[in-house]
Amino acid sequence: MRRTDPPRGREPGRVAAPLALLSVPAWLLLALGSGGIAVPELCSSALLWSVPSVEGLRYAFTFVAPQVLAMGWGLMVAAMMLPTLAGTLGYVRARSLGRLRGRLVALVICGYLAVWLAAGPVMLALALALHLAAPGGGQVFIAALAVALLWQVSPWKQAALNRCHRRPAIAAFAPEAYGDALRLGLGTGLWCLQSCWALMLASLLAPGWHFAAMAVVALFIWAERLEPPRPPAWRLRAPLRAWRLASFRLASVGR
């Protein structure tokens, strides 16, 4: 008998479209970019070994201009983080009037990106300072991985992850709906930043293979978002659902 899909229609595609329009080009630019365009290129500079100082920063900026750093950070966020917004956008689309839907989706994305872009200078300065403080990059990267691992198993991480799943009621009519959409984007961005800052910092500090590092981190962030919320606690957590999903599908293909 012919299988019929659950009645979801074209909605998943409509949710994914604006995210894909922003995220896919960002990935392409990150993949193609070399020299100055991507933030990770900064990280590979073996010349950045001195102690952090204004002079050091000036020296660093002779290699990569601040505006290029900012652009690189924007691309990283668009590529790695926007796909996690799919559930939130689907919710907003389902709970809004058709004539407002496009603007509300745009406001959620703007709010979400605003948080991450505002965090950019802090994250980049931290990454730069750590690079300038330590010779090479390996030790800093290992330290950043250790911090990320500690954060990953902490109750604060779980609390932030839980909040990323939150879908508060939103107003239907303008202008209140605009305010609610922006607040939802900002709020989701803040919880997402709390959840993922350590992983993003580690990917900034990778001493090499930056694109691969970003891809792995982005995949991990997407996979851990598939896990249902749990009570916050110190706990080793792994994206088991993604693992089981892949296993189940592979087994089905094999049958």
Partner: peptide
């Protein structure tokens, strides 16, 4: 429950 599947929705 905020720690529930729908994060208290």
């Amino acid at each position: 429950d905020m720690a529930g599947r729908h994060s208290g929705g």
